[in-house]
């Protein structure tokens, strides 16, 4: 893991430097002594130094025993599950307004449960119970304007 720490440190140093450079371009408002980028510049420089330090530590191999779980190589199934979480949230954001909350939430919960290895019955149960519970708690109890589900309102007009 020492090698990955070198790469990580260099990436951090690069990003922090870019942040400091961007901050240095921020203007100073009239009548003020310090520019709006003064503190961000300090933070960027500090980040760059920390990044170089992490890289140096990786070079010395000092970080080799500090990885813990991060040291375990992920499996393909794990990567698929991880990506599914990300995609499910994005798909919900893109389609919930069109489909309504309950179908979108049920699709996210049921689909992800299947990806995580649940049986079809368990996934379907979780999808229905989970989406309806969240809908009732947030929409009816807390009055959050979740995307409306017209057919559900027709079935249950409360």
């Amino acid at each position: 893991m020492a090698r990955s720490d070198i790469a990580l440190g260099l990436v951090i140093a690069g990003l922090s430097t870019a942040f400091a450079v961007e901050a240095s371009g921020l203007p100073t408002a009239p009548g003020t002594e310090f520019s709006a980028g003064f503190v961000p510049m300090i933070l960027g420089c500090g980040g760059a130094l920390a990044g170089l330090g992490i890289a140096a530590e990786g070079w010395r191999g000092a970080g080799a025993d500090q990885q813990g779980e991060a040291g375990q190589p992920p499996t393909l199934a794990g990567l698929v599950r991880c990506l599914s979480v990300f995609l499910a949230a994005i798909l919900y954001g893109l389609f919930a307004a069109r489909t309504g909350f309950v179908p979108a939430a049920a699709a996210v919960i049921g689909g992800l449960a299947l990806v995580f290895g649940a049986s079809l019955r368990l996934a379907a149960g979780a999808a229905v119970a989970g989406s309806l519970t969240l809908f009732l708690v947030f929409s009816h109890l807390l009055r959050v304007p979740l995307p409306p589900t017209p057919w559900l309102s027709a079935l249950w007009p409360f």
Binding site: A88, G93, V108, I109, A118
Partner: peptide, 27 residues
């Protein structure tokens, strides 16, 4: 079952973040 917890928690997170300002930006 640990297979149904992540989807339920994810959905609760999405709705929770949305409910703060009723905005997808927060999601």
């Amino acid at each position: 079952p640990p297979t149904i917890l992540p989807p339920l928690v994810l959905m609760a997170c999405i709705v929770g973040a949305f409910s703060l300002n009723n905005s997808l930006f927060d999601v």
